[in-house]
């Protein structure tokens, strides 16, 4: 009976206050979408770290015809230099840091280059001679890049030592900024949502002051009087969270599909990751609405 009664009260309250309820739904939808986007971007970073840190290598590029660095002053790398470099990479001093060493010839470099830039017209113009041969060094601890860099940067025949992790860090930096921006928008929108929920509840309490006055007089408990208002806000917020989740799903499903077709090696997050984000969105929406309506009721609905 009580349950049915509270449901009935909620329904009638939401009907009377439909425009406000719709605006609460929309505002929470937008704010939670940005919260979710920020969360998903962080998950994307984690995913890429997990995927790439195992694969990133330090590349020791060897001198070619047109290298400009000092150690290449004597022209393209010679066979002795190459052998010395390889021996040094496999030496016992470095074995604590070096996990794997792989040689990439100029022809192999061209193949990789063509793979990576498949759609670019540059590919046709590049020949194997223009690309440097290299040693791809997998590190035991990717953070210890400095060791290799110091050991080889002045080695004859070595052009440059480059850490692929740097490129990744740069990408992560951009994603982080995007995620911070999303979070910033989310915070502003959430404040808007809280204020709007508070106003809605206030209006709702005002339009039903007759009912609540009578409920008070006949001795209805505080919970029964306040619950319909709180749930009204919570339901609206949960609707917003549902729409936000749907939007994020659609973005991941279709946007992610497109991205992973375009950049197959990037390791994009899939709709699986929503399983982590969606419950958080619902919880956050319900908390926002519940807290702001309880605070409002304390001021505007005497019990």
């Amino acid at each position: 009976m009580r349950f049915a009664f509270v449901l009935g009260e909620i329904a009638s309250g939401m009907r009377r206050n439909l425009v406000m309820v719709v605006s609460v739904v929309l505002v929470t939808f937008i704010s939670l979408t940005f919260v979710g986007a920020a969360g998903l971007l962080q998950l994307q970073i984690d995913q890429m770290k997990g995927y790439w840190y195992d694969r990133v290598q330090v590349a020791v590029f060897l001198c070619v015809e047109n290298s400009t660095s000092e150690s290449c002053a004597s022209g393209p790398v010679t066979d002795e230099q190459r052998t010395a470099i390889e021996a040094k990479l496999k030496s016992p001093e470095l074995s604590a840091y070096v996990d794997t060493v792989q040689y990439e010839s100029q022809d192999q470099a061209l193949v990789h280059f063509r793979e990576q830039l498949a759609n670019s017209p540059i590919v046709e113009a590049v020949t194997a001679e223009q690309l440097p041969e290299s040693f791809r060094v997998g590190l035991v601890d990717p953070e210890k890049y400095e060791v290799i860099s110091e050991a080889f940067s002045s080695q004859p025949g070595v052009d440059i030592v480059s850490d692929q992790r740097e490129y990744l860090e740069e990408i992560f930096g951009y994603i982080n900024i995007a995620s911070l921006v999303a979070l910033g928008i989310a915070v502003v929108m959430s404040v808007g949502a809280i204020l709007l929920i508070a106003t809605t509840i206030r209006l709702s309490a005002f339009s039903r002051r007759r009912e609540t006055g009578i409920m008070r007089l006949v001795g209805a408990s505080k919970a029964i009087i306040q619950l319909p208002f709180v749930l009204e806000g919570v339901i609206a917020a949960i609707l917003g969270a549902a729409i936000a989740s749907g939007t994020l799903w659609a973005v991941l499903r279709y946007g992610g599909q497109w991205l992973s077709r375009e950049y197959p090696q990037m390791g994009f997050i899939s709709t699986q990751e929503l399983l982590l984000v969606v419950p958080a969105l619902f919880l956050l929406g319900a908390l926002l609405a519940g807290a702001s309506s309880l605070l409002t009721l304390r001021r505007y609905l005497k019990v």
Binding site: M1, R2, V218, A220, I224, I225
Partner: peptide, 14 residues
């Protein structure tokens, strides 16, 4: 009936 509903009386009693 409202006065009874809000204090949780059952439909039958109401």
């Amino acid at each position: 009936a409202f006065a009874m509903q809000v204090i949780g009386k059952s439909r039958a009693v109401i």
